Computed example of a mutant assay.
Amino acid sequence: MNKKKKSNKSGYPDEAIKTLARCFYPSMVEFFNSEEGQREYEKWLKEQEALNAAPIAA
């Protein structure tokens, strides 16, 4: 099968990005599973809904 490679336009090597992701991922999961993380996520969702509901100025 021909897999399509995702283009990395950041200028950083893919391996560096993957290494950082492996370092940050456990802390991110822990945060978003916490009560504080859940509150922050709910707040963000409400902000996104408000932004999407706002009319776009032409």
Score class of each variant (00 low, 15 high):
Glu15Ile: 06
Tyr41Leu: 15
Asn33Gly: 03
Ala50Asn: 15
Ser7Thr: 05
Met28Asn: 14
Gly37Val: 00
Lys5Glu: 12
Lys6Phe: 01
Asp14Asn: 02
Val29Asn: 09
Ser7Glu: 08
Asp14Arg: 09
Glu35Leu: 10
Ser34Asn: 02
Ser7Ala: 08
Glu36Met: 09
Phe24Glu: 13
Asn8His: 05
Asn33Trp: 00
Ile17Thr: 02
Ser27Thr: 07
Ala57Phe: 13
Lys4Thr: 15
Ile17Met: 02
Thr19Ala: 06
Lys43Val: 01
Glu47Met: 10
Leu20Cys: 06
Lys18Thr: 04
Ile56Pro: 02
Glu40Trp: 04
Asn8Tyr: 03
Ala16Gln: 10
Phe31Cys: 04
Lys43Gln: 03
Asn2Thr: 13
Glu35Tyr: 04
Gln48Leu: 13
Tyr25Gly: 08
Thr19Val: 04
Gly11Trp: 01
Ser27Met: 08
Glu47Leu: 09
Arg39Trp: 01
Glu47Ala: 03
Asn52Lys: 14
Tyr25His: 13
Ser7Ile: 06
Phe31Ala: 07
Ser27Pro: 00
Ala21Lys: 11
Gly37Asn: 00
Gln38Asn: 10
Cys23Ala: 15
Met28Cys: 13
Gln48Met: 11
Lys18Asn: 08
Ala58Phe: 05
Ser27Glu: 09
Ser27Arg: 10
Ser10His: 04
Phe32Leu: 09
Ala53Trp: 05
Ser27Val: 06
Phe32Arg: 03
Trp44Val: 03
Ser27Leu: 11
Asn33Thr: 07
Ile17Asn: 01
Thr19Trp: 02
Pro26Asp: 14
Phe31Met: 09
Ala21His: 10
Leu51Ser: 12
Ser27Tyr: 10
Gly37Leu: 01
Met28Pro: 03
Tyr12Lys: 08
Lys46Trp: 02
Leu20Ser: 07
Glu30Gln: 14
Asn52Ser: 11
Glu15Trp: 07
Lys3Asn: 08
Pro13Phe: 11
Asn8Phe: 02
Pro55Ser: 14
